[in-house]
Amino acid sequence: MAKVVVVTSGKGGVGKTTSTASLGAALAQAGKKVAVIDFDVGLRNLDLVLGAERRVVFDLINVTQGVAKLSQALIRDKRVDTLFLLPASQTRDKDALTEEGVANVIAELREKFDYVICDSPAGIERGAQLAMRFADEAVIVTNPEVSSVRDADRIIGLLDSRTLRAERGESVNKYILVTRYDAARAARGEMLTIDDVLDILSTPLLGIIPESEGVLRSSNVGSPVTLNEPNNAAARAYFEAARRLQGEDVPMVLPVDRRGLFDRLFGRRAA
């Protein structure tokens, strides 16, 4: 039976899709059978980040409406054969997604996979609520910045009230994933510290993903950073986050600015 994980944030553009792809790939690279679902109807992205955009035939809405079978819509990754994508529809109206349809798809995926990871659209409306509806666990993505943290707080409130688990009196396991953490800016006090973020959200930390050009390079070639540049600092942080998601106790280290350290040790070269 799969664990259903929603990757959500409230605020847009904080790194949900990047994190869904990277965590999904990292879990699959560790041998888990993983399905990632794009819930961002009309603004689908996950297929691009996974480099599967030219192989999309059927989508989530087709499956919920019985037009296609789940097995026809799932796209197997070319690099890791335990990673599958269920794409969103780029053309359909987002109201075409019904709670009952999603319930059926998730129930079927639960039988076949170890992890089902749902990439939520931004916002707190219907689309985001459907993406979290059947989750057992939630990865709340936030940047170390006030508006993103406040939206994360809002999303946590919804996870505690609008999910099936919450309505049954159970709770969704929640984790914070801080992304785009910039060590140099943190050192200058230009961002919220990790302590500030955790103090405001009072929710455990899954990982700290540094700001990295490797993430951009990888998504431009249609690959999660964990596959494209596995030794990159962001990739390593995603691997560790994936291990924590599986219940492993991996010590947390704050990403440091290596260049800064290098400069300090060896002196700055004149530009």
């Binding site: 707190i124 939206d151 409130g157 505690d160 009072s202």
Partner: peptide, 8 residues
């Protein structure tokens, strides 16, 4: 006993 979240 639980924190009050934004929007609540």
């Amino acid at each position: 006993e639980s924190p009050i979240r934004s929007g609540q």
